[in-house]
Design a protein around this nucleic acid. Structure first.
Length: 362
DNA sequence: TAATCGTGGGA
DNA sequence: TTCCCAAGATT
C-alpha cells in the first residue's frame, strides 16, 4: 500500500476535529511552566529545541537559563568563542549540537540579518536543524502548521492510531509526519504539536502510561484493545563495547597539570582531558615509552587512585586513574599543555574527567 | 540503513 | 546491576 493511502486508511473513522480540540484544550490547561515558554522568541525556541534533543526537561532547564544569560541574542552567540559555548554546554552531552548551533546562528546573523528564517527550506538547511527541530521552530515560534515528530509524538500516535511500525526506523518518522500533517490544527499548530509532546511526557509515558488521566483516552485504539504498553514497537539496540584506559594525572613540581584538547571532530570533540593510554594498543610495561613518544616527556608512574567508568551511548571507557611524576623532557605535543590547577575551570571537560579533578594535588 | 554522538535518572 | 530511556541530527 502506498504511503498516502496508508495514512488515509489509518485515519479513516477517526474524528480529527474533535481529537485536536480535546488535545489543545488539555494542553492549554495543563502545560508546564517552562523558561522557553515565556515568549515565542524564535532564538529561544531554537536553543531550547537543540538542548532538548535526547535530553530531559529537568536536565535542560538550568543549562537553558545559564545559556540565555550568557548568549541572550543570536548576535551574542555568533560573537562568542567556541570554547565558551562548549563550556556552557559542559555536562549536557552531544557536543556537536553546540558547535552546529553556533555555526548555524552565525549563518543566521550573516545571511538573514539575525532573524531566524521562517521559510522551511532555509530553516532546514541550517546545521543541526533536522526535520523535528525545523517543525518545532516553525510551529512554536511562527505558528506554522508543520509537523514536529519526536519520540513523544510517535509514541502517542502509535497508541492512539494503533500503528505497529518500528519507530527506530527513519521511514516510520515520515509516516507520522504524514499523519500529523492531516491531523494538525491550522488555527493553533503550536498548541497541537506541543500538546502531543506534553501528553507523551506527562500522561502517555513509555512504561506505565496514566491512561485514566488521559484527555484523549476515548480516541485511543491501543487503550480500547488494552495493548497500550505493547506500543510503540521499537527494536532494541545492542550494548556498548568496553575499552580500558589509563588516565594519567601528570603533575609537575610547580603544581602544573598536563591536559590536552581532543580532536575537533568525533567523540567529545574539542573538549579537554587528561592524557589517556589505550590499553588495547599499549601494554602496561610500555606505557612510559608510549608516553615519551607521544608527549616528549619522561615520567614515573605513581599510585593508582581510582577507577572511573564513562558510559556512552555506544561504548564504555573503563579508566584506571594513576598519578604521574614528571622526570625530564620538554612537552612536544600540538594539543597538550601544562596549566595551573586554578585555571581548570576555564576548560570544558567530559564528565568522566571532571571526576578525576579531586585527585589533583594543590 | 545503521552507526555515531553524552549524560543522568528511574524501573 | 542492568537496562531503557529523553523535545534527534549527521554521516
Amino acid at each position: 500500500m502506498k504511503k498516502i493511502e496508508r495514512i488515509h486508511h489509518i485515519l479513516s473513522e477517526f474524528d480529527k476535529e474533535s481529537y485536536r480540540k480535546s488535545l489543545i484544550h488539555w494542553f492549554k490547561k495543563e502545560q508546564r511552566v517552562l523558561p522557553w515558554r515565556e515568549n515565542q522568541d524564535p532564538y529561544r525556541v531554537w536553543v531550547s529545541e537543540i538542548m532538548l534533543q535526547q535530553t530531559r526537561v529537568d536536565t535542560v532547564i538550568p543549562y537553558f537559563n545559564d545559556f540565555m544569560a550568557k548568549f541572550p541574542t543570536p548576535e551574542a552567540l555568533a560573537d562568542a568563542d567556541e570554547q565558551d559555548v562548549l563550556k556552557a554546554w559542559e555536562g549536557l552531552g552531544y557536543y556537536s549540537r553546540a558547535r552546529n548551533l553556533q555555526n548555524a546562528v552565525r549563518e543566521v546573523v550573516e545571511t538573514y540579518g539575525g532573524v531566524v528564517p521562517a521559510d522551511p527550506e532555509e530553516l532546514g538547511n541550517l546545521k543541526g536543524v533536522g526535520p523535528y527541530t525545523k517543525g518545532a521552530i516553525l510551529s512554536i515560534a511562527y505558528d506554522t502548521p508543520e509537523p514536529a515528530v519526536d519520540g513523544n509524538v510517535m509514541r502517542v500516535l502509535s497508541r492512539i492510531l494503533h500503528v505497529e511500525d518500528d519507530i527506530s526506523k527513519q521511514s516510520t518518522r515520515k509516516l507520522f509526519e504524514g499523519l500529523v500533517s492531516e491531523l494538525i490544527s491550522e488555527e493553533d499548530p503550536s498548541s497541537f504539536n506541543q500538546g502531543l509532546m506534553e501528553l507523551g511526557a506527562l500522561i502517555c509515558t513509555p512504561k506505565t502510561p496514566s491512561c485514566m488521566l488521559c484527555p484523549v483516552q476515548n480516541y485511543c485504539r491501543a487503550f480500547d484493545k488494552g495493548i497500550e504498553t505493547e506500543l510503540p514497537v521499537k527494536s532494541s539496540k545492542k550494548k556498548q563495547k568496553k575499552s580500558p584506559y589509563l588516565l594519567l594525572l601528570v603533575q609537575k613540581e610547580n603544581g602544573e597539570v598536563l591536559i590536552e584538547q581532543r580532536p575537533n571532530k568525533g567523540l567529545l570533540a574539542s573538549l579537554w582531558q587528561y592524557p589517556m593510554v589505550p590499553l588495547q594498543d599499549v601494554d602496561k610495561e610500555s606505557v612510559l615509552n608510549w608516553f615519551y613518544g607521544e608527549y616528549g616527556v619522561k615520567i614515573e608512574l605513581g599510585e593508582s587512585v581510582d577507577r572511573i567508568k564513562h558510559v556512552f551511548s555506544h561504548l564504555i571507557w573503563e579508566m584506571e586513574v594513576i598519578k604521574v611524576k614528571v622526570k625530564e623532557g620538554s612537552l612536544d605535543h600540538e594539543r597538550a599543555k601544562f596549566i595551573k590547577p586554578d585555571d581548570m575551570d576555564d576548560y570544558p571537560f567530559p564528565v568522566s574527567h571532571q571526576k578525576a579533578h579531586p585527585y589533583i594535588s594543590q
